[in-house]
Design a protein around this nucleic acid. Structure first.
Lengths: 188, 188
DNA sequence: CACAAGTTTCACGAATTTCTGAAATATCAA
DNA sequence: TTGATATTTCAGAAATTCGTGAAACTTGTG
């Protein structure tokens, strides 16, 4: 497994970057390598390319599997496991978003709900609950929205995105149409 | 500075959570406390409430200022600095998004562009560049979109979000209108 | 200016995370 | 079943990050 400078540079960058948000350097580098590779790789090849110990690669791949960011495949007459990143980048992004949501957002929503259920002891608590309610509402709004977005086919999605700010005029116009009900009510 | 269980629980949660994505526990807890508080706090009050050393609080606040997540204010006849989180949660979210973009997205875009400018040595490199191009495109698309979204007034924004999946039917309809140009072209 | 009140920096020990090699485990084929 | 091949686990070494107290620095006031 040889890595050209082109690949090596990006792998290195991605490792450093990875460590800036939650993921560790090793995992970031492994993923960059898989992402750029034109064929699936086995653990030994990855270890050799990146100069990681075999066990480190194993840990990293396990982590990536837990994130559902790699696909596993086999070659006939070869007992080793081969790994690859999904070919469709939008799919990678969606998976990443889903997993982060599950790990980073949902627990916070639970904590917020738990706080809101408690009986406030004083004004300080009442104020805190008000803030928690605001945060809970914003997160719920963003998440519901993201669910909806994810369900769009990619053509509509890309149209929506490229539309950008135009959407504002569009909605203003739509609101004038009699009987148009673009938004369902939020519950109070 | 007393913290009720309600506040203490959330502060603790936020600290743990914070360490799950890039931020450290201390900084997360300080921010949770400021976010929930009904008045601005000085460094000593924060340290007392959370049982952190004075210097640790100072570091944490510096970090939060670098993220532009806290506002600084002064009280007359008191030389100490008082800190508070913005009152508007949408503003907090936007700042967070902007900063993460600057720190985590922009450097990656640069790395991708640098890679794309290199002369490929072989087919492996050509494939890698294709992947880099895909990633670059998706990120640019998402970022441009996010810029547009940020510029919407919060009423339109919330309408757009609550609309959710309805947008699809809406766009389908609009596409049939003669002369409707919802999306500007992407450059090739 | 000298002092007091407040903030920041810094070196270092503590705690946590990462990475490794060796051993244990699993799986297939003869 | 045995042996060859592959993967996982795990204890501890190495590296990194965190948190502290003490000292240095800053700023406003009498």
């Amino acid at each position: 497994m040889t890595t050209t400078p082109l690949i090596q540079d990006f792998v290195t960058h991605f490792g450093e970057m990875g460590s800036r948000w939650g993921i560790n350097r090793t995992v970031g580098q492994i993923y960059a390598l898989l992402f750029l590779s034109d064929h699936s790789l086995n653990a030994d090849e990855i270890g050799e390319a990146l100069n990681f110990s075999r066990s480190n690669v194993s840990m990293g791949l396990k982590e990536l599997q837990a994130w559902r960011l790699v696909r596993l495949s086999y070659k006939s007459g070869d007992r080793r496991e081969y790994f690859e990143a999904p070919r469709e980048i939008w799919e990678i992004f969606k998976t990443l978003a889903e997993e982060r949501r599950r790990r980073e957002i949902e627990p916070t929503l639970s904590a917020l709900r738990a706080g809101l259920l408690q009986t406030p002891e004083n004004d300080q608590d009442r104020h805190a609950q008000m803030r928690m309610r605001q945060m809970h509402e914003l997160i719920e709004l963003l998440m519901t929205w993201f669910d909806d977005i994810q369900r769009l086919d990619s053509k509509t999605l890309s149209q929506l995105m490229r539309m950008g700010a135009t959407v504002q005029k569009f909605l203003e116009m739509a609101n004038k149409l009699p009987g148009f009900k673009g938004a369902k009510e939020t519950n109070p």
